[in-house]
Amino acid sequence: MIDLLASEAEQQIIDSVAGFLAEKFPVTRLRPGSDGERRMEAGLSAEHWRDIASLGWFGLGIPEEQGGAGDTVIAEMLVAREIGRCAVSPSIAATIAAGHLAALAGSELLAGLMAGEHRVAGAIRLHAASDEFHLIDARGADYILVVDGMQARLYDAAAFADVRRVISLDDAVILERAHLAAGARPTVQDAGSNIGRRVSLYNSAQLLGVAEAALKLAVEYAGVREQFGQAIGSFQSIKHRCADMAVAAEAAFAQVFFAGVSQASGQPDAAYQIAAAKVTSAGAALANARSGIQIHGGTGFTAECDAHVFLKRAHLLGQLGGERHWIRETLLTQALDDRVSLS
């Protein structure tokens, strides 16, 4: 039995998350006002964080016996996808993942994470041999989640020294550089790959959201913008480009959620599917964001149009959740026999 379409309950999650984000975090919040300043600061305020925690996202997938709502990874991915659509902070997904890490290790951090009392930010190691990291939206974070390969570790934010802000390509987030103190020991860590896989799935779901939002924006514009006396979407060069964006989004949707159900049902090839989901969703997000800018023409090049938000977010998320090296290993070494059949 396989079903990749949302159930009624899942559709409710999508609608409620989308409704909340549309009200509080519309993509238009990132547009400059008449004074050139943005309406909303980068990152998330403490108030926003409390709002989000009150929706229960941080405990959505935590087993009921540990105080969560006991939903599946799919439900969490549906949340992540909407976050991607609105380019909201990736630290939400990092905190959801950290909750699972705490739950797995039986750490007392779990309650605080679910309640929104502890905040977690993601980090990207500059390169495999470096002790320097990029921290994403770590202002106000108590913990930093680091994933090497598929190994997840949660560090106290104090373990990072020489923190300095750098100008972020994706200016909807606060980007910092910092060194992990020599000998720093993680507060919690995952002996297996469970958390690493979740991080990758949440990230791919966000990338999918980016790909879909870029498509939606472009199609809306192509349907109303007129040139030569007709909507530009009636011209094949635009229409076909939109079609290609739809194909990329659908392929990403199918693969991301197939990877999700593979992980949720413990398939032996889940890692392979997760790696493929990262490749597919990252490719779709980047391609759609680029096409979106082109379809918008001159306005697509300005900050007054939201198309650039998706491009920048695609680049940011592309670096997160499933590094190139792990993907290469996973996608190139596994033979077909391990995965051709579902059984």
Binding site: L4, E250, F253, A254, F257, A259, A275
Partner: peptide
């Protein structure tokens, strides 16, 4: 990349 694309094609079949 081709293996990822083929995986996605299979997922699309399931879709």
């Amino acid at each position: 990349n081709l293996r990822a694309e083929v995986a996605a094609l299979r997922a699309m079949t399931y879709l």
